[in-house]
Computed example of a mutant assay.
Amino acid sequence: MSFVPIKDGDFTSTIYGLIKDHRYAEAMRVLQYELQRSPNSRAALSLLGYCYYNTQDFIMAAECYDKLTQLYPDHTDYKLHHAQSLYNAFMFPEAIAVMAQ
């Protein structure tokens, strides 16, 4: 499937619609493109991490959440999601280390 640009003003509703319909691959493609344009986009990183997690790509989810914890250290929910992703990737010592920080 080719990438079709999303019209201005429709980005949020389109992404959330794709996620609601479990069309994670399409949502991830759009979010990855958005991250190329804006590498530190909190919304794109968070939603991409969510999509990776739900497709059971826990390593990639952990990478997204790791970056979010670095960019937004005061948001402990990202730290928890990071640890959960590592745990589900069977990276137990790494998950414990994240929670110990």
Rank of each mutant, 00 (worst) to 15 (best):
R42K: 15
V4Y: 01
I96N: 13
S13Y: 05
L68T: 08
G17L: 03
D66I: 05
C51H: 01
E63R: 13
L35R: 05
Q56A: 09
L86M: 00
R37M: 10
Y50V: 11
K7E: 15
A95M: 14
I6H: 08
K79E: 14
L80E: 10
S46D: 13
M99P: 11
P5Y: 00
R37P: 03
A89P: 01
F92A: 10
K67D: 06
V30F: 02
A100C: 13
E63W: 02
A83G: 09
T12G: 03
A62L: 08
V98Q: 11
D21W: 01
I6P: 05
A83D: 10
Q70P: 04
Q101R: 13
L80Y: 03
M60K: 06
E94L: 07
M91D: 11
L31C: 10
E94F: 00
L35G: 06
E94A: 13
I59M: 06
V98W: 07
T14P: 03
T12Q: 03
G9T: 06
P93D: 14
L47C: 05
H22G: 12
V98S: 15
H75A: 14
A83M: 09
A44Y: 01
Y72L: 12
I19K: 08
E34G: 07
Y53A: 14
D77Y: 03
D8I: 04
H81R: 15
H75L: 12
E34Y: 01
E26M: 15
M28S: 15
Y52M: 06
N40C: 09
E26W: 04
L86V: 01
A83L: 06
E63Q: 15
P5K: 03
Y52D: 09
L47S: 09
S41W: 01
I19D: 05
M28W: 06
L80Q: 12
M1H: 04
A43D: 09
T55C: 05
Y52A: 05
Q84V: 04
F11P: 11
Y50H: 08
M1L: 04
